[in-house]
Amino acid sequence: MILSVEKIGFSYKNNPVLLDVNFKVKKGELVSILGVNGSGKSTLMKCINRILKYKQGLIMVEDRNVKKMKEIEVAQKIGYVPQSSERGFLTVFDAVLMGRKPYMGWDASKKDIKLTEDILETLNLEEYALRYINELSGGELQKVVLARALVQNPKILLLDEPTSDLDLKNQLEVMEIIREVSKVHKIASVVVMHDINLALRYSDKFVILKEGQIFAAGGRDIITPDIIKETYGVEVEIENFQGIPLVIPKSY
């Protein structure tokens, strides 16, 4: 088990946001976190990454307690893409090379430059290399940010709504990349998703959060009309389309 989240509890001031959250992720697995706005999805991601300091519970990465790791060690194991990225005045190459920060001393090494070059090629970003990131479209930016997290060479990838601002083609492209790298590099990916159908199409497992607690977790079979209704308050039908369940909301 590469990532195990055990009984995590977190409160903002005195408001509990996460309660007793448990789940495990294997190498190469893609897990989608579902739930309404404010159900604690982003908070959970930040706890795993130790950006937020949780009081209760235990998070283990490769059988090591994340709390006892140094900041730099966490950064070498976990790549994180937040919900929104700021567009600094840096080139794409610089912005991706930055993912090598946890391995750098004074400056980037030849190896860091080479890895950056490779990942830009893999994600078809070469021609953007010297473009400034504040000139990119939403889809391009998302790929750049993903490239940065991948060049970090992480064991675990945490992605907070990676497709939320993207058009259909870019949504599919980004999800394909995520699934591909998870399988090839044996990375455990935890992805916060709002689009249930996109999640169903690409994920191996699902964790549904409701009011900071796990409401359901498991494979595709847990996505039932009842669960969706309980989670989102929307009546749906689930059809099977070419082997993939398709969630269709009933008229509202």
Binding site: G79, P82, L90, K101, R148
Partner: peptide
Amino acid sequence: WDYNSLESGEETAQSLG
């Protein structure tokens, strides 16, 4: 490089250690 990482936002910088 630490200052560069802040360019992408506080949380990204933290996630880079």
